[in-house]
Design a binder for these strands. Structure first.
Lengths: 214, 214
DNA sequence: CAGTGGTCTAGACCACTCT
DNA sequence: GAGTGGTCTAGACCACTGG
């Protein structure tokens, strides 16, 4: 089997897709199965990839599958992300074993676009001193003198918890940015990670040559 | 069905996994299917996610599934990526309709870790003037005065072509960095994109406050 | 050759949503 | 209630790899 059937099916579905405007209802899986003469499982494997690529949206029940509108993803500056300068909601704080976790849902135009989870270790009085309405990064820098390490960027799969917060399916690939915070002695006090829905948010990066921004 | 069986299976497989050192052979799918009392399809869905998360490696034939060694991914500075200062091989150049495409495979320790594709439009004499052994970015800056726009970072799924170059399966999620190049009149002349295997390479990002690197 | 992962099928049941 | 996507099963065939 040189080229798998699900990939042939994906190619044919892409042809259908290209002619359709956003929000158009897409044929049900069972209809596509009959149309392309392959089993529903095979059709689903093709549809799965198209959904991951942001070409299709799947709803539950009678909502069915629809063509995703081409909408441009929101551009987020790295600095806004790490400095916690984005609108957010549902910020929750919990403490266990001397580790405090702060979790926020980042929003854009009322849509959840990302989740930030910050783990803090041995910061006396944090829970009482921190006002969840203010930027966390600034508070950590001024109140505890935390210095931020070089952020790192990679991909991650949505955990069930993150998936429910972002309205995506578990194991959806996300863009991940993480960094550490060190106190004045150099000890690590902060571990932060932001995951972003890459279909809704891209990261814009400062370009640097030597030690200058160009 | 509150929590799917494949996810329960995944959790149990993670328990098995955590005790095993790298390169250990993992039980075959059919054995796991018997062990956990679920069908092989369900086991495969769980294994698929573990492979995507970089915890397992799958080989063909008798090679079977093995535990992925924890090996730290290579850290790549954004500047090294955009300035084309990484080891690469198999650089190919092709021209069609006034658009020249330069494709390189980025390597680290003899492993392919990424692919860069640069599309150039209307740059007279490029094919004859460019030496594929030298950094492309520098050449474009000096020979054609191209200025680079802010790079953008997102995720992408491996196309069949990229998948074969990087030894991953099609539709594997990858880290993508793209940027444009403009000439002195402001016209767009360059469109570049690098995709990275995020299991082998992370991106380290300069942290900027205002216009200073901190 | 035996066993592995990769693909594919036909069928089933469920939770959900719209009418 | 009808139809949708989400999950799950049991079985099958294939290409590939190692002993």
């Amino acid at each position: 089997m040189p080229v798998p059937r699900y990939y042939q099916a994906k190619t044919r579905l892409l042809d259908l897709l290209d002619d359709l405007p956003g929000h158009t209802p897409f044929p049900p899986e069972r209809a596509l199965s009959d149309l392309l003469r392959v089993s529903r499982s095979t059709i689903r494997k093709a549809l799965d990839e198209l959904v991951l690529e942001g070409r299709l949206l799947r709803g539950t029940g009678r909502q069915g599958t629809t063509v995703a509108p081409p909408g441009q993803p929101h551009r987020i500056a790295l600095h806004a992300l790490t400095a916690d300068q984005l609108p957010r909601e549902r910020t929750t704080t919990s403490t266990r074993n001397d580790v405090t976790t702060v979790e926020s849902v980042l929003v854009h135009l009322d849509d959840p676009i990302g989740v930030r989870q910050t783990h803090l270790h041995a910061l006396p009085g944090f829970a009482t001193r921190y006002d969840p309405g203010t930027p966390l990064r600034e508070f950590l820098a001024t109140a505890y003198r935390l210095r931020q390490s070089e952020p790192r960027c990679t991909t991650a799969l949505a955990t069930p918890r993150v998936a429910s917060l972002l309205n995506v399916r578990p194991a959806t690939p996300l863009l991940a940015v993480s960094w550490l915070g060190h106190d004045t002695t150099g000890a690590t006090r902060e571990l932060s990670r932001v995951v972003l829905r890459s279909d809704r948010a891209h990261l814009t990066l400062p370009q640097v040559r030597g030690d200058q921004i160009v």
